[in-house]
Computed example of a mutant assay.
Amino acid sequence: MSTTARSLFVTGTDTEIGKTFVSCALLHGFADAGLRAAAMKPVAAGAFERDGQWHNEDADALDAAANVVLPPEIRTPYLLKAPAAPHIVAAQVGVTLDIAHIVDCHRKAMQRADIVVVEGVGGFRVPLDDTSDTADLAHALGLPVVLVVGVRLGCINHALLTADAIAKSGLVIAGWVANRIEADMRFAEENIDTVRSRLAREHHAPLLGSLPRFSPASPRGAASRLDISTLLRTLRETR
């Protein structure tokens, strides 16, 4: 593993709140900072076949944003066909979602890039089997966490609960991103200010950026709204 390679784990307050979008924006930001940036989506549920190969929409988006594209078996060690909770789909097809194997794939990814963005699946406590979940995966990887908060009604509670769960796992929150998934939400800025105050006070987690609802989606445009320099500084300090 390179002695200068860095990595982070992207999680969210729920599913469908923009983890992939923010992960892609981070990849563009890291590339713009002169880094060789790669991405992993260790567990992906929902696949389609194209030209004889199985693809996942999120994994393909990460590949498109990265300037170092990993082999599919390293980028996504577990690609499940059905779009459902991964532990349910894995059990139905007889697949064990082995955290140790994902950690080994991550080690290989770190040998190929300056920075590796690891996107989780769903929220922070999505089960992988009867006893482990994505919090256990993040802990096994030992990475600083970037929390994506989907700005909608209930986001304050979801953000604080998720941040507490991350801290309970012994992990550092390198920062968080406010992602406006409801363009017409009332008091959106007030909600963001409340989360910013609480996460700064309770977890020393800086707001890395507040993203409007892009239409169409533009990860490259979102990258310019993220504080990549602060994030890189935090990653250096938490090595």
Rank of each mutant, 00 (worst) to 15 (best):
R152K: 15
F124Y: 15
A85W: 05
C105Y: 03
L62Q: 03
L160I: 14
N157M: 09
V118S: 04
K108L: 11
V149D: 11
L143T: 10
N56H: 00
V118M: 07
Q53E: 02
V116T: 14
D63A: 15
D130Y: 14
G94L: 09
D114T: 00
V151G: 14
E49M: 07
D164G: 06
G29V: 01
A84T: 11
V126W: 06
T76W: 09
D104T: 13
N67P: 03
N157P: 12
L153S: 07
A84Q: 02
M40V: 04
Y78D: 12
Q111M: 08
T131I: 07
L79H: 08
A61C: 09
A85Y: 01
T162S: 10
G142W: 00
A59C: 00
P42I: 10
A38F: 03
A140Y: 11
V145W: 14
A64D: 04
L141I: 04
L161A: 13
A109M: 09
A109F: 08
T134R: 06
A44Q: 06
L79M: 04
A91N: 11
Y78P: 01
A91Y: 03
K81W: 05
V95C: 12
V68Q: 07
P83Q: 08
L128F: 05
P77V: 13
G46S: 00
V148F: 01
V148E: 00
Q53P: 02
T96N: 11
L128Q: 05
V93C: 08
Q53A: 10
L153M: 09
L153A: 02
A163P: 00
F124Q: 14
V89Y: 13
A165E: 06
D58H: 10
A113V: 02
S132L: 15
D104E: 12
L128N: 07
G34N: 01
A47Q: 02
I99L: 15
Q53W: 05
V69Q: 01
I99R: 14
A37T: 02
H139D: 06
G94E: 10
P42Q: 15
G94V: 12
A65D: 06
F30E: 02
A31L: 04
W54C: 06
A135P: 00
D60W: 01
T131M: 00
A84I: 07
D133G: 15
A90L: 09
A44F: 02
T96I: 11
C105G: 11
V103S: 04
A140T: 11
G94Q: 11
T96E: 12
A91R: 14
I115Y: 08
F124T: 12
L70T: 09
V93L: 03
A159R: 07
D114Q: 03
M110F: 01
D114W: 04
V89H: 08
D32H: 05
G123L: 02
F30W: 06
A47H: 00
V103Q: 08
E119C: 04
V145E: 08
A100H: 10
A65I: 03
A109Q: 03
D133H: 14
T96Q: 13
T76E: 09
L80D: 08
A47C: 03
L143M: 15
E57W: 05
P77I: 14
D104C: 07
C155S: 03
A165S: 06
V151Y: 06
Q92F: 05
V95K: 15
A135Y: 04
H55W: 04
G29T: 01
